[in-house]
C-alpha cells in the first residue's frame, strides 16, 4: 500500500562512511572492543550528544584513563587525552581549573574510576569540580583478562574470584551522591536514548555530573555469570531495568543476577556551587583587596 507521494525504501546500502564519522576518528575503526561490548554504544550516545550540544566542538574535551573504556578518547575527533590508570579525574581537575571554559568529559571504566582511582572520584565529587564523568561499569577488569574489582557483585565468578567474589562491591551512584556530586545517574548500554539525554543534561550541569553505565562484558564477566552472549546481558538490561528517578540510592546495589532487577534513572540533579566558581570567587575577592607589593 504505497501511495505515489511516499518514497520507496529498499535493501540496505553499503557505504564507506557513517553519518557520525565527522565526530569520531573513523580512520581508526574497527575499534578494539570485543563484539557486543557496550563501550561503543556509550561512545555513540556521547557522539550524538556532542552533535546536539550548542557548545563549540573545540571546547569539548575527552579524557580517559586506562583499560578498555580508557580507549574511548582515542576514537573521538576532539582534543582527547588518554592518561594513566585511575588518574583521569585528577588530570581533568587540573585542566578544568586551568581552563574553566572547557567542557570536559571523563570516560573511563569501573576499575579505573571506582577502584584504583576511587579517591580521585570521591574528592572530585566533594569539590564538585565542573566536569562530566562517565563510568562504564562492566563489573570486572576486562582488558587484563577478567579479574574481580570493586564493582564485581558478591558471589560473581571471575579469574581472580574463581570460587565466587567475597567482596561487597560499591554501590556507585550512592557513593558519588553522598560525596556531593551535582548530578548522579545510572543507565545501561541498552538505554540508548536515555544515555544521550543524560549526556546532554550533564553538559548543562554546573558541577560534578556523574553517570554510571552498566555494560555487557561478554568474554570475561558475562561468560561466568549467566550471560554467555553479549546479547543475554543486553536483554537482561531490557527486561529487568526499572526506571526510578526517585529511588532510594541506598537500595540500588547491582547484583547482576539474571533474576534480579536493576534500578536506573537520573537520581540527583541539584544546584551546588562548582569548584571552578568558588575558585573564581576566591580570586576575585583576593584581587579586589589589591596586591600589596612587598
Amino acid at each position: 500500500m504505497i501511495s505515489p507521494q511516499v518514497p520507496h525504501g529498499g535493501p540496505e546500502v553499503r557505504v564507506p562512511h557513517h553519518i557520525n564519522d565527522p565526530v569520531i576518528r573513523s580512520e581508526r575503526l574497527p575499534n578494539i572492543w570485543c563484539p557486543g561490548c557496550g563501550i561503543g554504544i556509550v561512545v555513540g550516545a556521547y557522539v550524538r550528544a556532542l552533535q546536539k550540544s550548542a557548545i563549540p566542538r573545540e571546547r569539548q574535551i575527552s579524557i580517559s584513563g586506562i583499560g578498555c573504556t580508557g580507549r574511548v578518547s582515542g576514537y573521538l575527533n576532539l582534543d582527547s587525552y588518554h592518561t594513566t590508570h585511575g588518574r583521569a579525574i585528577a588530570f581533568a581537575t587540573g585542566m578544568a581549573v586551568a581552563r574553566p571554559e572547557l567542557e570536559i568529559t571523563v570516560i573511563a571504566g569501573d576499575g579505573d574510576l571506582g577502584v584504583i582511582g576511587g579517591n580521585h572520584l570521591i574528592h572530585a565529587a566533594r569539590r564538585n569540580v565542573d566536569i562530566n564523568v562517565i563510568m562504564v561499569n562492566n563489573f570486572n577488569y576486562g582488558m587484563t583478562g577478567g579479574q574481580h574489582g570493586g564493582t564485581t557483585p558478591l558471589g560473581a565468578r571471575t579469574h581472580t574470584s574463581p570460587y565466587g567474589n567475597v567482596e561487597t562491591p560499591f554501590n556507585i551512584p550512592y557513593l558519588v551522591a553522598a560525596a556531593g556530586a551535582s548530578f548522579v545517574s545510572r543507565w545501561t548500554a541498552m538505554h540508548v536514548r536515555q544515555l544521550t539525554a543524560a549526556f546532554s543534561r550533564m553538559m548543562e550541569v554546573k558541577g560534578f555530573a556523574f553517570m554510571e553505565v552498566l555494560s555487557p562484558c561478554p568474554p570475561t564477566f558475562g561468560e561466568f555469570n549467566g550471560f554467555p552472549e553479549a546479547l543475554d546481558m543486553m536483554k537482561y538490561f531490557r527486561d529487568k531495568a526499572v526506571v526510578d528517578h526517585n529511588a532510594d540510592l541506598s537500595k540500588i546495589a547491582v547484583t547482576a543476577r539474571p533474576d534480579d532487577s536493576v534500578v536506573v534513572g537520573n537520581f540527583v540533579d541539584r544546584k551546588r556551587p562548582s569548584y571552578q566558581e568558588l575558585l573564581g570567587d576566591l580570586r576575585a575577592r583576593v584581587q579586589a583587596q589589591g596586591v600589596a607589593k612587598k
Binding site: T83, T93, M95, H123
Partner: peptide
C-alpha cells in the same frame, strides 16, 4: 589534591590546558 598522585596528574592536565 587528595594525594601526590592526583597532584601530578592535575599538573599534566593543567599543562595541556596551557
Amino acid at each position: 589534591m587528595e594525594d601526590e598522585v592526583g597532584s601530578m596528574a592535575a599538573l599534566v592536565g593543567a599543562s595541556f590546558g596551557g
